[in-house]
Amino acid sequence: MPDSFVQNRVPAAATTQCVEVIEVSKIYHGGTQNAVEAVSSVNFSVPHGQFVAILGPSGCGKSTLLMMVGGLEAVTTGRIEVDGSPMAGPRTSIGIMFQDSTLLPWKSALDNVLFPIKVLKRPVQEYHDNAHALLDRVGLYGFAQKKPHELSGGMRQRVSICRALVYEPNVLLMDEPFSALDAITRDEMNGLLLDLWQQYTKTALFVTHSIREAVMLADRVLVMTQRPATIVEDLTIPFARPREMSIGESREFNEICGHLRERIEHSHFEGRR
């Protein structure tokens, strides 16, 4: 298992990038004269199997950027390529997790996990075992038939992780998926995600405003600021995988966090001036 995992996620030799973002800008006109530049000439690329966090303060356009990668928002200028072909709209090779769990309130946890299968008109029966396995994997054994209102916030977000993984997309986009949870549940979910990552290695883009969360989860952190709404730092996180949550107490971890905080505060200050 560990061997295949290592083979799987060695990106060094791979020359093709999974996600490529080239000079992308987004301008909102919003019906008025003064346009707002939500994202301005962003460039980055993500190799296959890498976990990248996009870190930035609220309202810096990082979610917009993610939605453009997911094909849910159009780019104003520039180009986004996923798996070598330009994005023109949503694709089934991309799974998205939103800030709230967006579960259908009248469907059970299992049916919610199987929702994408139903939409994609794949044979639901074939995915039954897979869905059950995923629910067990995230610790929801025995909760498959519960409705969302019977689950806690953390459990709902676990269901939504399962839903994003069940149809086996190549790329996973996560838009501040844990920001609505309390701190303790959030740590728990981070642990779970690290754990899941060992098994379902995918290319991932993870948007967050929590520095510790970004450093804990990602192979690489991109720092985005508000003015200009672009990426100002591209930092590789040196911790090996599998990671334990305990690395959060290490000096190196805290130094990286400190550096990132400084970077954000600095550009924030610059932007305000």
Partner: peptide
């Protein structure tokens, strides 16, 4: 956001109506 989820799954208008909007 549920409708956005449908869009990300490339659901047709009819699917997102039947499965999400109507209920």
């Amino acid at each position: 956001s549920t409708l956005r989820l449908c869009r990300s799954l490339t659901a047709t208008d009819w699917q997102s109506f039947r499965l999400v909007r109507f209920p």
